[in-house]
Simulated scan of single mutants.
Amino acid sequence: MAEIIQKDGTWVFDGDALRLTPGRDKNVGLLRKALGELVVPLRALAGISFEQGKKSGRLRLRLRDGACPLLQATGGRLTEPHDPYRLVVESDRYGVAEYVADEVRNALLLDQVPAGPVDAYLLPGPSVPLSVSAGDGTASFDGERVRLEWNWKTEDAKAAGGARTLPVTEITDVEWYPSAGLENGHLRFTVRGVPVKTPAKYDPNAVELWGFKKDPLMALVAAAVRARLPHPASAPGEAVRPPTDAPQAVAAGPAPSAAPAAPAEDGHDALLRRLRELGELRRDGVLTEEEFTLAKQAVLKRM
């Protein structure tokens, strides 16, 4: 197990997943605090890096494209204090950060986790129900419907239509943009059959954001909805996949005869086979000498 505890948060890696817990420091963003603890399975990771600075460093996770609904909804636009996949590391813990990064890299190498995109979300969206008030309105989501309500700052033409209720089955897309410079941000829902032509200020299916403290929390609503929409890599019209641990319906009828099970490979033999594979990868030039040494050490620890 590899663990690093900082004021910014705590990361724990057990070989199968990284557990990310936000800290209580004043510099921890509101979104990270509201999101709470995240468990990132190893198969969702494309890589990890550690960058040293004069006063502090950064541990950063790189997730496989399409693995996280929050990243899908925000499109890489989360600023550093709100990014749950980044950890500020104090200078006296650089060695620990390097160790955590090495352990994750070794596990990715040993398990041969591909770095390419995925066709289903590997992390859940934020818990529902949730409700956030920011900008010119309040967005609430109960897992089935989005409700948009307006406040006294909403444009009259937009508020005149009253509160909006959008069934998730009618939503085809959702996006969150933070305000930047003189440009306001928004949380916008694309509804089937309704073209998006107007700015968020007048769009009844959008909340306009002005750059205040609670704006990033609207990204949680976007992520929760995104997690319940078809994955971008799925075929058009394909239904949202149930979680892998959900019970699956089975058609009635006689059960087919099971094929004889292959004998399970002994754990020790599997590790020896993996060592041989690593040696072949080194000979073929796929692994450098340093990568081979690190991977071999990780295998030997398991024996």
Rank of each mutant, 00 (worst) to 15 (best):
49 S>A: 14
45 L>T: 07
64 R>S: 11
34 A>W: 10
51 E>G: 09
41 P>E: 11
42 L>G: 04
48 I>A: 13
64 R>D: 11
68 C>M: 04
55 K>S: 15
35 L>S: 01
66 G>Y: 01
57 G>F: 07
49 S>E: 15
68 C>E: 12
40 V>G: 00
57 G>V: 07
63 L>K: 11
37 E>M: 07
53 G>H: 12
60 R>Q: 14
35 L>D: 00
45 L>D: 00
41 P>I: 01
49 S>D: 15
48 I>L: 11
58 R>P: 03
35 L>R: 09
39 V>L: 08
45 L>W: 01
44 A>P: 10
65 D>M: 10
68 C>H: 07
61 L>I: 07
44 A>V: 10
34 A>L: 02
44 A>L: 01
35 L>K: 03
63 L>Q: 12
40 V>P: 02
40 V>S: 00
33 K>E: 03
69 P>G: 04
34 A>F: 03
37 E>F: 04
52 Q>E: 15
70 L>D: 08
53 G>N: 05
56 S>L: 15
58 R>N: 12
39 V>W: 07
67 A>F: 00
33 K>V: 11
60 R>T: 15
50 F>Q: 10
44 A>N: 05
43 R>Q: 13
51 E>D: 13
45 L>K: 06
54 K>W: 05
50 F>R: 05
58 R>Y: 13
36 G>H: 04
58 R>D: 12
56 S>A: 15
67 A>E: 05
49 S>T: 15
65 D>L: 11
56 S>C: 00
44 A>S: 12
38 L>W: 02
45 L>E: 08
51 E>T: 13
70 L>P: 09
68 C>T: 01
55 K>P: 08
66 G>H: 02
49 S>Y: 00
35 L>I: 00
47 G>H: 12
37 E>R: 12
48 I>W: 00
52 Q>W: 04
50 F>G: 06
43 R>H: 12
63 L>P: 09
53 G>Y: 09
47 G>Y: 12
59 L>K: 08
45 L>H: 04
56 S>Y: 14
